[in-house]
Design a protein around this nucleic acid. Structure first.
Lengths: 229, 229
DNA sequence: ATCAGACTGTCAACTCCTTTACACTTGGCA
DNA sequence: TGCCAAGTGTAAAGGAGTTGACAGTCTGAT
C-alpha cells in the first residue's frame, strides 16, 4: 500500500492545513488502484469524497447514449478531484476514469469538511483553487467562441504540457495521448483533429508518435498560438 | 442611494455569515449605477471585489481583436460576481458589462476575506456555491461536445429562464435578449441561431418579439430538449 | 516471433454553419 | 410625426468539419 501522509502534504488543496491536521486525516485515507481505462466512478453516484491522484493520471469525462464521449479534463499526478466534496448531498455530476494505470487516494468528504471547520485556515486556499478551476473552464468556453480550431487545439495541448511538467523544469513535455482523445476533448472527430495537427506538426511545434504526444518547446508553441488570433 | 444591508442579506454567497458580520460589511459597500451596455470592468484590471447585482442584469464577457464578443454568462438581480475575490493579487480574467440599466454593490475583497477569517462559518457556503458554478460551466462544455446545436440552444434558453424567475413561482419567463446575444453565447452567428430558433418557435416552446424572448412553459421546453439527446 | 487489437493516415460525399448581402420591421427620440 | 438606429428574416455561395470506409502501422501479449 501507499503512504498517505506525503501525498496529503503535496496536495495543493490541503496546503492551508497545519501538519497536525494532516496527521488526523492520514488514517482516514484509503488508497485504491485502477487499471488504465477502468471506471473510477460514474456520474450520478452518491458519494462525497476528495480524491487525490497519487500515481498515474485520471480523466474526468462523461458520455451520451450514442457512445460519444466527452473528456473534460485530464488530471496529472498530484492534482485533486471530486466535484461534490464541498456540496454534501449532491450526486456526482461527472464521471472519472483511469487514464493510465493509477493510484487514487480517497478522503471521506464528511471528515474533510469537519476538519476544515476545526482548522479554518485551510479554507482560503481551497476557495482560491476552486475559483481558479472555474476560470480555466470559462477560458476554454471563451476560446470556443473567440478563436479558431487551430488555436484551440494548440492551447489545449499547451495546457496539458504545462500541467504535465509542473514539477520538473520547463522543457520538453511528453505524455500518452491518442488523437481520438484529443478529439473527445475538443468536441471534434479524430479525422478533423488530424488535419489541424498536421499543420502544427509541420512546424515542429509538436511531435506525434503512436499513442504519444511531445511538445519539444512549450514556449515556442505558446508564441505561435498567440500569432493566430 | 441604495440600502446595502437587505442586499447583503439576500446574497447567497454571504448566507453563511451571521447578521453581525453583515452589519460590519454594510458600511464598506459602495453602490454604483451603470447604463445599459456600459462597461463595468475590463479583463486584466487589477481589482479584487465582490460585486452583487442589486438591480438589473450584468453580462460576463470578453472580446477578441476582431470585435467578436463572447458572452459567458448573464447574471440576474441578486447574483454575485467578481472572479478574483478569493484569489488576491490575480488580475481579472473576464470583463463585466451592464446588460440592462443596473445597480451593482461592490465589496472590497480584502474586507470580505478578513471578515470570513473572523466568521469562518461563512466559508462552507462560499465553497459550495463556487463549486456549483464550476459544474455548471463544465456542463456547458460537456453539452458542446455531446449534444447538437438545437439541444444546446434550448438548454441555454431554459437556463436563462430558470435563473430569471428564480424568485417568482415557476411559470412563463420573459426577458430582454437579442438573437445576436444568443449567438454570442453559443459561439454562433445570428443567422445560424435563427434557423434553429424557428424550429423551436414553431412548436410554441419559445416566443420571440423585438429584443425579447419568452419561455411560456419552461417544463415543456425541458421535456423537449431531453427528447433530442 | 508473431498476431490481434489498437492507433493512425487519407479520401470523397455530405451536412451544417458562416459569410455576405439586402430588404424589412420595430421602437425611441427629436 | 417622421426619422434613424437597432433588431430581424431570408437566401446564395463558400468553407470547415463530419461521416463512413478502408488500408497501413505500431505495440503488447501469448
Amino acid at each position: 500500500m501507499i503512504e498517505p501522509l506525503p501525498i496529503l502534504r503535496s496536495c495543493p488543496l490541503l496546503a492551508g492545513l497545519p501538519e497536525e491536521a494532516l496527521h488526523e486525516l492520514a488514517p482516514l485515507a484509503r488508497g485504491q488502484h485502477y487499471k488504465g481505462d477502468e471506471v473510477i466512478y460514474l456520474p450520478g453516484s452518491m458519494q462525497s469524497q476528495l480524491s487525490i491522484v497519487a500515481e498515474g493520471r485520471v480523466r474526468i469525462c462523461s458520455s451520451n447514449a450514442r457512445g460519444r464521449e466527452a473528456t473534460l479534463a485530464i488530471l496529472d499526478t498530484g492534482t485533486w478531484f471530486g466535484d461534490t466534496v464541498f456540496s454534501p448531498g449532491a450526486p456526482r455530476v461527472f464521471g472519472a476514469t483511469a487514464h493510465d494505470d493509477c493510484t487514487v487516494l480517497d478522503l471521506p468528504g464528511t471528515a474533510l469538511r469537519s476538519l476544515l471547520q476545526r482548522y479554518p485556515q485551510g479554507y482560503p486556499v481551497a476557495l482560491d483553487l476552486v475559483s481558479r478551476r472555474l476560470w480555466s473552464v470559462m477560458s476554454i468556453l471563451q476560446d470556443d467562441v473567440l478563436r479558431g480550431t487551430e488555436a484551440r487545439i494548440g492551447r489545449r495541448l499547451l495546457y496539458l504540457a504545462q500541467m504535465h511538467n509542473a514539477s520538473e523544469d520547463k522543457g520538453a513535455a511528453s505524455f500518452r495521448l491518442t488523437r481520438e482523445l484529443i478529439a473527445n476533448m475538443m468536441g471534434m472527430t479524430r479525422q478533423g483533429v488530424h488535419r489541424v495537427l498536421k499543420n502544427i506538426e509541420a512546424q515542429g511545434l509538436v511531435e506525434f508518435a503512436y499513442g504519444r504526444v511531445t511538445v519539444p518547446d512549450p514556449a515556442r508553441l505558446q508564441a505561435y498560438i498567440e500569432t493566430l488570433d
